[in-house]
């Protein structure tokens, strides 16, 4: 049915149906974010010998995040006098919108993918870069010293780690000869997961992805104990929630992208396990990747800004470049793909 719809000539009705599907998916993502936050708090709790949220919604605190959202909804809407009002208001929207747009192209299973773009990977990278404008706008509009510092750090970090991220993705594109994420997954059916062929790219990609997400070893932009909350110091209520939401939606998107690029998407690890549906495999891999992100948060100390920048330019970038040429050479000489 959806295939027919995709092949029909585009019309307003098509748009309406796509919109409804996207709306349904938005609620799935919001559900994911709700429980990702809870899971993060629980996992951190267990790792630090605490219990974590356990008051609302039974022993597991299943309603904790819902209550948090309701609290944010009725919070006072404060916009500081000294801030740049229009910019202050637009910034969260600009930060959030790309986070959601990015998810459109990720293939979750064989049949569950929204937009099958042939520039998939490049699309992801290009759109996700827009968020930094929202961050920088928020920082600048707040007219707060902590915000401005946090925003500048966030920009410098994002900009620096974008390059190793893109270069690491290039190794995959070289192997498959396509940027379409569907093709990338299908290519892994014959050759095995790309983490086996591109371990260096995986390490670089994963580190850069962590930095892009501002996850813990790289969370300098919002380092609580030096910059209060970084670029969203002045934000409260739902405006602040939009920034948090963008962060977690990116976590969702990036984990999915890592799985698609390096862990074979919905494909089972071994051929004989293919009776289990792809959605289950995707879910399992997804759980593992997000768990690793939480785990890192509990175990790694925060980096120093100078180490952070030098690491991107002096280590990750040369390694990623070397990886590209090694891949190209291997492909040419060994004819493995």
């Amino acid at each position: 049915m959806v295939q027919d719809l995709l092949h029909s000539s585009p019309s307003l009705l098509n748009f309406g149906i796509f919109f409804a599907m996207a709306l349904a998916f938005l609620f799935v993502i919001l559900g994911f974010v709700t429980y990702a936050i809870l899971a993060e708090r629980k996992v951190l709790g267990f790792m630090q010998g605490r219990i974590g949220p356990n008051h609302l919604g039974g022993r597991w605190g299943l309603l904790q995040t819902v209550a948090d959202v309701l609290k944010l909804l009725v919070k006072e809407d404060l916009i500081p006098k000294a801030s740049d009002r229009p910019m202050f208001i637009i910034a969260p929207v600009i930060a959030f919108a790309p986070a959601f747009v990015v998810v459109a192209t990720i293939p979750f299973t064989e049949n569950l993918q929204f937009a099958d773009l042939n520039v998939g990977l490049l699309y992801y990278i290009a759109i996700s870069g827009i968020t930094i404008i929202g961050t920088l706008m928020a920082a600048w509009a707040s007219n707060n010293k902590y915000s401005l510092l946090g925003g500048m750090r966030a920009t410098a970090q994002m900009v620096s780690y974008e390059i190793p991220l893109v270069m690491a993705g290039l190794g995959i594109v070289l192997l498959t000869g396509s940027m379409n994420l569907n093709d990338i997954v299908l290519a892994q059916q014959e050759s095995g997961w790309f983490i086996l062929w591109q371990p260096v790219a995986f390490v670089v990609f994963f580190i850069a992805a962590m930095a892009e997400l501002y996850r813990v070893p790289f969370d300098l932009a919002e380092a609580e104990n030096e910059l209060v909350a970084g670029f969203h110091t002045e934000y409260s209520g739902f405006r602040w929630a939009m920034f948090m939401l963008a962060e977690y939606v990116y976590m969702f998107a990036m984990s999915a992208l890592i799985i698609v690029l390096f862990f074979g998407g919905w494909l089972p690890p071994f051929e004989f396990l293919s009776f289990i549906p792809g959605a289950v495999w995707f879910g399992l891999k997804f759980a593992v990747v997000t768990y690793v992100l939480y785990w890192f948060r509990a175990t790694f100390p925060r980096m120093r800004p100078d180490q952070l920048m030098e690491f991107a330019w002096k280590i990750l970038l040369p390694v990623a470049l070397a990886n590209i040429f090694l891949t190209a050479l291997l492909k040419e000489l060994l004819n493995i793909f």
């Binding site: 092949h7 098509n14 796509f18 959030f96 747009v101 998810v103 459109a104 773009l117």
Partner: peptide, 13 residues
């Protein structure tokens, strides 16, 4: 149609 989907996502975002 694929880009229409992207546009729908943008509107929702």
């Amino acid at each position: 149609n694929n880009y229409l989907i992207v546009f729908a996502f943008l509107c929702l975002g």
